[in-house]
């Protein structure tokens, strides 16, 4: 349940940052930034959106845990509790 919610949160945020990307069609195990063509500004906006969703901050040290959709979903699920 929490994983589904985390996935929803992530894909919603991705849709906001990259409205031209078919977020459902991304490979969840491959690096996210290259697939969705996110530059550093897009990525920071994505993190900002996610931080809002988890109602907390996402520190820089946690960025590596957002590398793929799978990793980010696991991370967000843990943060969402």
């Amino acid at each position: 349940m929490s994983t589904d919610r985390a996935r929803g949160v992530l894909l919603d945020a991705l849709t906001f940052v990259a409205p031209d990307v078919d977020v459902e069609g991304l490979d969840p195990a491959e690096p996210l930034r290259e697939q969705a063509d996110l530059d550093s500004m897009d990525f920071m906006e994505l993190v900002a959106q996610l931080a809002e969703a988890v109602q907390g901050d996402i520190p820089v040290d946690d960025y590596p845990r957002l590398e793929t959709i799978d990793a980010a979903v696991a991370y967000l699920a843990a943060r969402l509790g």
């Binding site: 929803g8 809002e52 109602q55």
Partner: peptide, 18 residues
């Protein structure tokens, strides 16, 4: 909805369909 301000998220919809 489980999102901010009770907004319905895609995950909420999927939870119902599941």
């Amino acid at each position: 909805g489980s999102g901010a301000h009770g907004a319905v998220l895609a995950a909420d919809v999927l939870a119902v369909t599941a």
